[in-house]
């Protein structure tokens, strides 16, 4: 691979609120920078000082183990002071609004705020009231940009490219921010995206987002280079979107038989946490084609890249 001077890559924007609006060059810059951190993270000495003196607050309005710890580790490895704030629903019920929280936090002079919120657009709203950099760690069913970046990095490391690959995203598209960010990123990088789900889990108008639509796994996985499974968000199922978990697994759960519809050796991915036996069979999740554990590793590297690239654009950097 031809290597540009990656370490000088700066994300010339204050926030990372979504994949939407990122240029191809910015995406590539982040992925290349993340590659460096993959190497760093495999060393014994993982520490860098690029965020030394900086304060990073992880503000999670929605519980998350994986993403929060990944961001925490990423910040710490870059030398930032990292604080985790889990804002429980009860605190919000006491009457403090999102904006109040923003104003309070702003007074503490953080440099970078990592935010997850259960409502689409909430992170953007928060960012508009803050002086620091804001990273979207997932807002409702809207975007989850670092997930899409880590997915892209995982695919690229295994296939050496993104362009021209066919990626099948399967499952609860309606409620999935992972799906939206991945669709945007993969389209931007010249991959083909196909969404596969029962019609109740496909938002009306999804085909206008530049994806192919399939409603069964045989058709959906045909020729796929990558099979990306989504968690079936049980807790968000207010309506009866699917009749039962077992019917869902029967038609849409990824087992070895359905995986065989895809290209031989197709990558199996899942953003986690997995519902084994609901959307994915253990044999596949732990099988030879699975890169699910690698995704977690890439997560830390990508988040370090985002933190580093954004911090280079901070005042007094």
């Amino acid at each position: 691979m031809n290597i540009a001077p990656k370490s000088s890559f700066v994300l010339s924007r204050r926030h990372l609120l979504g994949i939407e609006g990122l240029s191809r060059e910015e995406i590539l810059g982040l992925l290349d920078l993340a590659e460096e951190f993959v190497a760093l993270n495999r060393q014994i000495e993982k520490k860098r000082a690029s965020l030394r003196g900086r304060t990073q607050i992880n503000l999670f309005f929605e519980a998350s183990t994986r993403t929060q710890s990944s961001f925490e580790l990423a910040g710490k490895r870059l030398g930032a002071d990292v604080m985790n704030m889990a804002v429980s629903q009860s605190a919000m019920r006491k009457g403090e609004t999102l904006i109040d929280t923003a104003i309070t936090l702003n007074a503490m002079h953080p440099d970078i705020l990592v935010v997850r919120h259960h409502a689409s657009g909430a992170v953007e709203l928060l960012a508009s009231k803050l002086d620091c950099s804001v990273i979207n760690a997932g807002d409702g069913a809207h975007e989850h940009p670092t997930q899409a970046l880590l997915d892209a990095l995982t695919i690229r490391r295994n296939r050496n490219r993104l362009e021209g690959l066919l990626v099948a995203i399967c499952g609860d598209i309606t409620h999935s921010r992972v799906a939206r960010s991945n669709i945007l990123l993969l389209n931007s990088m010249g991959a083909r995206v196909r969404v596969v789900a029962p019609s109740t889990l496909l938002p009306v108008g999804i085909e206008r987002l530049g994806v192919e639509v399939a409603r069964d796994m045989r058709e959906g996985l045909a020729d796929a280079d990558v099979v990306m499974m989504l968690r079936l968000q049980k807790e968000r199922m207010n309506g009866s979107y699917v009749p039962s978990m077992s019917e869902y697994f029967h038609y849409f759960g990824l087992d070895e038989k359905k995986l065989a519809y895809a290209k031989p050796g197709a990558l199996v991915m899942h953003p986690g946490p997995m519902n084994r036996g609901v959307e994915i069979d253990s044999a596949v999740a732990d099988g030879a084609q699975s890169v699910i554990r690698e995704q977690v590793e890439m997560g830390v590297a990508v988040r370090m890249a985002v933190l580093e690239a954004l911090s280079r654009n901070l005042p007094n950097a």
């Binding site: 689409s120 657009g121 807002d139 409702g140 069913a141 809207h142 975007e143 309606t174 921010r177 939206r180 938002p203 009306v204 108008g205 999804i206 206008r208 987002l209 207010n238 309506g239």
Partner: peptide
């Protein structure tokens, strides 16, 4: 209407908001 908050269609799908048909 359910949990829908804006007109159902492409734009709601982009914003990640549930639509009202």
């Amino acid at each position: 209407v359910g949990d829908g908050v804006m007109n159902e269609g492409e734009f709601a799908a982009r914003l990640g908001l549930l639509g009202v048909p």
